[in-house]
Write a protein that binds this DNA or RNA. Structure first.
Length: 609
DNA sequence: GAGCACTGC
């Protein structure tokens, strides 16, 4: 590798592994993702995730190790890719001295044409002043491949989406052929959520009963994330019965994450549930909103992957024209707490002037700065503190990182316990799956009750992790099955646990590596230890607390909003003096999730010291 | 009595 500006090329990928066995053996191609790294000596091309490259920026702010960076799928606009684009712009348009005078080449790839914006963003501000915008940015276009899809809009707004859906599905079913030379001609419907999907399934199945026996049959498959892997898998299988059409009722999962084969008809309800952070309320909402034009086009495209198709939009052409061009990028929809800390840790003192393709509201940034100050990550001068520098080393959000630091403090002394809990919580979806049938529920509840603790959800997660790791590996599958624990998420939790433990040793928060699980016997934590754990969590979540009001509702300490305990919590329906919750979501109501019982006096105590 | 979809140092 050269002395300055390396000869290594980094290809940024969104988690998709691109491993070519032969090249890898020769050491030409390497990759680096969260739990898996393979970068042999002599690597010329390295595939990394955005988060990994942001992490490398901490050590190597000018990316001197690389001669070129390729950013793929930039239109997906994750927070990480937005931050990375900002740093890349600074490197490309800034002073080359930090790279020994060697320029960095940046290639960005996008499936949708926001060409002008991207060109403008990566141009230096000087060229903008001279009116030669984008001259140093070259542009190449490659045609996509798709079969034609005919789009049909509703002539006028539909009063009832479910009714319109059933009507459209059976219009397709009775008027369009079951297959052609390209293969099956199945139907994929985009709906907003589980509830809507289950209602639609009932309606379609009821209506199907009334069909003339000469008409082909239909079989309905729901498809959403909370469904078990097996149930999801069913929706991908070609239908076995002859003379039958498959109808898949899906959430956005079928727009972004999976491809259902055989689809030639798409029915689009025009909406999707979106999570959006409300900086003023310090909480997020999950509500059905109109989709963007680009999302509608993406859904339409799902009908043309295997042959010419048709897309029926359950809204008018006028409504389509009123849709936003693109979805709101994530940085405008989430808490910018993490983004601000990421910038601060990489030397950005004035975060408001950092180049971003979309800037969050000033209020959102200010809230994040205040919150980071409360957490102790920023000092009174707004600069990152010693504590903040330690926090960014952990792959968890700032409040969790603060909890880990508190837990390592001798006053709380519960780092391993905090790691167990945070591993369970940050392992993706809840490790506890929802139980669908009533009979299953009874038996599962018997086992789950054993894990539950009166202190609430956090100590229940701790109990679960401790019971799990002290179970012999041959019995772990049964352990999970009985309690309906998602094995994939549990495996992820173990990975995170291992990573957090090793980072704790590296940062000297743990003096020595913890004993292997095989040498630890299970013992439920004492109420005294549970109290120390909850107090350590309050160091990160003192703002997310509520006290029981005289009318038996919980009122938040911050903002005085009424919150209800979510039904997924072990404390649902329970009245305690005060609660701490790690998540705060508005759906049908204002809900607190991941809830623990605390004493009201602990809140002020946590904010004080 | 309720759950759009991903990912990560």
């Amino acid at each position: 590798m050269g002395k300055n500006g390396g000869d290594e090329e980094v290809i940024e990928e969104n988690g998709n592994e691109r491993k070519d066995k032969k090249d890898q053996e020769k050491g030409l191609v390497g990759y680096s993702v969260r739990f898996d790294h393979r970068v042999p000596p002599g690597t010329k091309i390295k595939y990394v995730t955005e988060g990994m490259l942001l992490q490398e920026l901490l050590r190597d702010p000018h990316l001197r190790q690389y001669s070129a960076i390729i950013v793929d799928e930039i239109h997906e606009r994750s927070v990480d890719v937005d931050l990375l684009s900002g740093f890349l712009k600074q490197i490309v348009t800034g002073d080359k001295a930090g790279r020994g005078g060697i320029p960095l080449k940046v290639v960005v790839m996008s499936a949708t044409a926001q060409v002008e914006r991207i060109k403008k963003f990566f141009s230096s501000d000087d060229s903008l002043k001279k009116g030669t915008s984008g001259e140093e940015v070259e542009y190449l276009q490659i045609e996509g491949r798709q079969f034609p899809v005919e789009v049909v809009h509703e002539p006028k707004p539909v009063p009832d989406i479910q009714e319109a859906l059933v009507k459209t599905v059976f219009k397709i079913h009775t008027q369009e052929p079951l297959s052609d030379k390209h293969g099956k001609k199945d139907i994929l419907c985009f709906l907003t959520g589980q509830e809507e999907i289950e209602a639609a399934q009932r309606l379609i199945e009821e209506f199907a009963e009334t069909l003339d026996p000469k008409v082909p049959k239909v079989k309905v498959f729901p498809l959403f994330g909370q469904l078990s892997m097996e149930a999801q898998h069913e929706a991908f299988q070609p239908i076995k019965h002859p003379f039958t059409r498959k109808i898949v009722l899906a959430t956005n999962i079928a727009e972004t994450s999976v491809t259902v084969p055989g689809v030639r008809y798409v029915v689009d309800c025009g909406k999707a549930k979106v999570k959006q952070y409300r900086p003023r309320l310090g909480m997020e909402s999950l509500l059905a909103k109109p989709i963007s034009k680009s999302s509608a086009i993406q859904r339409t495209g799902r009908a043309g992957r295997e042959g010419p198709g048709k897309c029926f939009r359950l809204y008018t052409a006028e409504t389509f024209n009123t849709l936003q061009k693109t979805d709101l990028p994530e940085i405008l929809r989430t808490d910018v707490l993490g983004a601000v800390l990421t910038m601060k840790a990489r030397g950005i003192d004035d975060v408001l002037s950092f180049p971003l393709m979309d800037r969050p509201e000033i209020e959102a940034v200010e809230n994040a700065l205040v919150h980071l100050h409360v957490l102790g990550a920023l000092g009174d001068d707004g600069r990152i503190t010693e504590m903040g520098r330690k926090m960014v080393l952990f792959p968890v959000t700032a409040p969790y990182a603060r909890v880990l630091l508190a837990a390592a403090d001798p006053r709380y002394d519960c780092l391993l316990e905090a790691i167990d809990i945070i591993s369970c919580i940050t392992a993706g979806d809840d490790i506890f799956m929802q139980v669908r049938s009533e009979e299953d529920k009874e038996s599962v509840d018997v086992y789950r009750k054993e894990l539950q603790r009166r202190e609430g959800d956090l100590i229940t997660y701790l109990n679960t992790m401790q019971r799990f790791v002290s179970t012999p590996s041959s019995d772990r599958a049964t352990f999970c099955k009985q309690r309906r624990i998602n094995v994939r998420n549990m495996r992820q939790a173990l990975n995170i646990r291992k990573q957090l433990r090793s980072l704790s040793v590296k940062t000297k928060m743990l003096e020595e590596p913890p004993a292997p699980d095989s040498e630890v016997t299970y013992q439920p934590v004492s109420p005294e230890t549970a109290e120390r754990i909850l107090k350590a969590f309050l160091k990160g979540f003192a703002m997310k607390t509520a006290v029981l009001a005289p009318d038996s509702s919980y009122v938040t300490a911050h903002g005085k909003h009424v919150v209800a305990i979510h039904p997924s919590s072990s404390l649902h329906g329970v009245k305690r003096e005060a609660i701490m919750f790690l998540e705060h979501v508005y759906t049908q109501k204002n809900y607190a999730k991941k809830v623990s019982a605390i004493q009201a006096g602990w809140i002020a105590e946590a904010l004080a010291a």
